[in-house]
């Protein structure tokens, strides 16, 4: 596979696109591993953050693809502990955001991460139409998407009895404005890489 196919027309590596779109330069990474060391999710990751940093540094299409196909990028919780401790001040959560967008765009989402993606999608769809999160609707939507019918079925009545579940969504006054924002954001440059 030539890099021309993998990347945008200018033969750029993923690291180049990342730098252009987000200003984050992963070439600064010197593999100290402090990010992975403090990551609450590192144990479950196929490639902890310092490893995918190195993979991206090589600029090799096969390794870039492996990163985009990895589960790791979806497991990042954006807790920012890596970023605040990174000696090179690399905004790693921002890199993860970028990689997720690229992974989704290219259809490389790891099978085990699809539920996470479905959840995010259900979440955004909920606010796309109502402006505010309609928790019940979102969860139902997520269940339809993930087919996880039984999960949380036992907690829901408890929540309801405690007055924690709204049965009807709250809508913002100008749903059109919301849709306009979504439409504009869909043209985000990052989403196109």
């Amino acid at each position: 596979m030539s890099t021309a196919q993998t990347h945008s027309a200018q033969n750029l590596t993923l690291a180049d696109c990342l730098l252009q779109e987000t200003g984050v330069d992963i070439r600064r990474c010197y593999q100290c591993g402090k990010c992975s060391a403090g990551c609450p999710m590192a144990a479950e990751m196929d490639y902890p953050s310092s490893v995918w940093m190195r993979m991206l540094q090589t600029g090799r299409p096969d390794l870039e693809k492996a990163v985009l196909k990895s589960q790791s990028i979806w497991l990042c919780l954006s807790c920012e502990s890596c970023y605040v401790r990174c000696p090179m001040e690399i905004d790693i959560p921002r890199v993860a955001d970028f990689l997720r967008a690229a992974s989704k765009r290219r259809g490389l989402v790891h099978p085990r991460a699809r539920n996470i993606l479905r959840f995010h999608t259900a979440f955004l769809d909920s606010i796309r139409y109502t402006g505010r999160l309609y928790e019940m609707g979102m969860v139902v939507d997520y269940k339809v998407r993930s087919r996880k019918w039984w999960q949380d079925l036992l907690t829901a009545p408890g929540l309801f009895l405690r007055g924690k579940l709204n049965l009807l969504p709250h809508r913002v006054k100008h749903p059109k404005a919301m849709r306009k924002l979504f439409k504009w954001a869909a043209e985000d440059k990052e989403a196109r890489i």
């Binding site: 967008a101 959840f119 995010h120 999608t121 913002v172 100008h174 979504f182 504009w184 985000d188 990052e190």
Partner: peptide
């Protein structure tokens, strides 16, 4: 009045521009 969801933590996971646009409104 008429605030909307900030998009956390779904928006920045999928679309950076949206993650700015939602809170911005």
């Amino acid at each position: 009045e008429d605030w909307n969801c900030c998009g956390a933590s779904a928006a920045h996971n999928l679309n950076h521009t949206l993650s700015l646009a939602l809170p911005a409104r």
